[in-house]
Design a binder for these strands. Structure first.
Lengths: 75, 75
DNA sequence: CCACATTTGTCCGTATGTATC
DNA sequence: AGATACATACGGACAAATGTG
């Protein structure tokens, strides 16, 4: 079994945190710099994951501000 | 007025081609290398655009094969 | 099975621009 | 003006899947 790519792990982690209520609607996610440290990675997987999460409706991202859990995240 | 980013242009072009029937369901899109030449860009905007198009259900991408118009692309 | 070319997948570092505070 | 944070884009590296011979 191949290990999943890091960005998939980040996506899964955020979704799990939202489902668990650890991250609540409207709440700010850690910055990309912080997520880089947390995952000990470059910005690439972090940005990639956030973009996909946004496409899927889990978060909204605002330049200069940060990423926030969507008001009505998917189930 | 800021010009739109290149990857947005690529997304719009593919969507327009699908809507117009220039690209039909199941049909193979040009490879990333070809799209790079076409847009005189690096791989980045092309990959980015294709990934978003896939998230939005317009195309499916298969490693080693290429990208193809989805069987039932969105309206 | 092996070799090879083609194509997409994942990831890094860097640069520059834009938005917010 | 400065600090923080995200946005777009380039170049490169190596991996993995596919198809052909």
């Amino acid at each position: 079994m191949p290990q999943p790519p890091l960005y998939e792990q980040i996506i899964a982690d955020v979704m799990a945190a939202v489902r668990a209520g650890t991250l609540k609607p409207g709440q700010k996610l850690p910055s990309i710099a912080e997520l880089r440290e947390q995952y000990e990675s470059s910005a690439w997987p972090v940005r990639y994951a956030l973009r996909i999460l946004e496409e899927r409706g889990w978060i909204v991202t605002r330049q200069g501000k940060g990423s926030f859990v969507a008001n009505e995240p998917p189930a």
